[in-house]
Structure formats: structure tokens, C-alpha cells
């Protein structure tokens, strides 16, 4: 196949991944890496490099819209980025000693977890309890607009939230994904942030986390322009299209489709990882 044919095929697959990721809110990175390795037979490390670039593109592209709504909590973002960035650099260091077959198995586990989570409702339990003492010291508590009024919220579980974010950063670097599912776990469940605050703040952090390991991988030669450009353009176009049509589609069937795709990819990654075919 010529370069043009390969690029068009990769861009088309990435477009679908980006659209599905935006529509389900779970991100496209988790589909891009298995697509590149299983369908296009690209080495896992090149796939991770290309995927990280696309994660940065969608996160930064979507952030501009979120920012206008005024939900992002910059202090929570920066505080947790300390954890995700350190986690990402540690993950990038680890990735040079972990065999790719082990990474494929880890990827399969994260895919399966994502599939399970995508069927569970996210429960919102915003908290009126007194905030965690660190939340006061770090001035993390904030307020967000609900029907034109600013509603205050308090932050819980600062320590465990910070630790889980470190893990999210490490997974992001090891697997080339945004780790949105893990970030949501930390921010919704442990820190008890309102949905709109956790979603927008998490999106903001995803780009910074991915940039940390992408920088390291650039030097290691993981980022190949001929693979990364169709992935970046495809995912970005898909995500923008997905955000446009989101208002007009029911997400129920899409969620089923997404879960189906993710489960199949997980089983394939698991098989290839265990048999050492990757």
C-alpha cells in the first residue's frame, strides 16, 4: 500500500474512534491504540506515541468550549497535575523496561474496566460535608454555576484522589491513553466533585498529562510523523463532529456499540499479549 492509502485508512479509523470517544465521553485513545496495533500492525510503541498526540489535540480542542462555561477549577487542576505529571514521567521511564506483551495485557485490563464502567451510571454525590482539611489549606473548594446561580461545593478525599491521579498519569504514559475513566474515579468518587466540575477539570488535565510523556517519547523515537498525522487529524475531526451531533443522538445505543467494540479489542489485546504476538 502507498503512504496515501495507509494514511487515509488510519485517518478514517481514527475519525470513528474520535467520534465514538466524544459521544460516549470516554475518549478516543482507548480505541486508537488497539486499532493501530491489531488492524494496521503498527508496533505498540509507535501506536502509543501517535495516540498521545491525538489525546492532546482533543483535550485542548474541547477545553476552549468548557472554559467559557466556567466550570473548571484551576487550583484542583494544577494540584492534581503535580500527581499526574510525576505519574506520567514515572510511567514513561517504566515503559522502557516493561515488555510490550505485558503492556498489551495491562491495556486489555484497562479496556475491560472501561467496558464495565461505561454501563454503570455515574452517580453524583456532591458533598455538603465539611471539606477535607487539606482542601481548605490548598483552597480547593469552589463554586459552579447552576441555573445562573453560583453553588458552592466542598472537596473530600484529597489524599486518595491525589494518589489515584498519580496512577492515572502512569497509565496514560504506559498505554498512550487519556485515562479519563480513572480520573473520573478519583474526582467523582473520592473527591466528590460535581460532574460538570470533574469532567471539565479532568479534560484540562488530560492534555497536560499526555504532554509530559509525549515529550519523553519524542526523544525515544516513538512519534512517527507518517503515523501520528493521520491519527491526530482523524481523531480531532471525529471528536469535533461527535461534539456537534451529541445533542441530537440518544447515547444508549452508542454506549452499547462502544462497549462491544472495547470488549472485542480487549479480548484481542489479551490474546496477543498472552501469546506474545505483540
Amino acid at each position: 500500500m502507498t503512504l496515501l492509502t495507509v494514511a487515509v485508512l488510519i485517518a478514517a479509523g481514527s475519525f470513528l474512534a474520535g467520534m465514538l470517544g466524544a459521544l460516549t465521553g470516554l475518549g478516543g485513545g482507548i480505541i486508537v491504540v488497539p486499532m493501530l496495533t491489531l488492524l494496521f500492525h503498527v508496533d505498540l510503541r509507535y501506536a502509543i506515541g501517535a495516540s498521545l498526540v491525538s489525546v492532546i489535540a482533543t483535550s485542548s480542542g474541547a477545553a476552549a468550549a468548557y472554559v467559557r462555561e466556567g466550570y473548571t477549577n484551576v487550583r484542583i487542576g494544577i494540584f492534581l497535575e503535580v500527581a499526574t505529571t510525576i505519574g506520567a514521567l514515572a510511567g514513561a521511564a517504566l515503559s522502557s523496561v516493561i515488555p510490550t506483551s505485558a503492556l498489551a495485557v495491562l491495556f486489555a485490563i484497562v479496556l475491560l474496566y472501561t467496558a464495565v464502567r461505561s454501563f454503570q451510571q455515574r452517580d453524583e454525590h456532591p458533598s455538603n460535608d465539611p471539606p477535607h482539611p487539606w482542601a481548605v489549606k490548598l483552597r480547593l473548594n469552589g463554586s459552579y454555576p447552576v441555573k445562573g446561580e453560583m453553588v458552592p461545593y466542598t472537596v473530600q478525599g484529597v489524599g486518595s484522589g491525589f494518589a489515584i491521579m498519580g496512577l492515572a498519569g502512569m497509565l496514560s504514559a504506559l498505554l498512550g491513553i487519556g485515562s479519563g475513566v480513572v480520573k473520573v474515579l478519583a474526582m467523582d468518587r473520592r473527591m466528590r466533585l460535581p460532574f460538570k466540575v470533574s469532567t471539565t477539570t479532568s479534560n484540562f488535565m488530560i492534555g497536560v498529562t499526555a504532554a509530559a510523556s509525549a515529550g519523553v517519547y519524542l526523544h525515544r523515537g516513538y512519534i512517527v510523523p507518517t503515523i501520528a498525522f493521520p491519527v491526530m487529524l482523524g481523531v480531532l475531526a471525529g471528536a469535533l463532529t461527535g461534539a456537534r451531533v451529541l445533542a441530537r443522538t440518544s447515547t444508549g445505543k452508542l454506549r452499547t456499540l462502544f462497549t462491544g467494540v472495547v470488549t472485542i479489542l480487549a479480548l484481542e489485546m489479551l490474546y496477543k499479549g498472552v501469546t506474545g504476538a505483540l
Binding site: 498526540v53 492532546i56 483535550s59 492534555g207 497536560v208 504532554a211 509525549a214 519524542l218 512519534i223 501520528a228
Partner: peptide, 13 residues
């Protein structure tokens, strides 16, 4: 172009 993209969130920080 890809490096500029990686630099974008860094510029945000």
C-alpha cells in the same frame, strides 16, 4: 506541527 501540539498544554501551564 506535532511538537507544537505537544507544546500547547505546556504553554497553558
Amino acid at each position: 506541527g506535532l511538537v507544537l501540539l505537544i507544546a500547547t498544554p505546556i504553554a497553558r501551564v
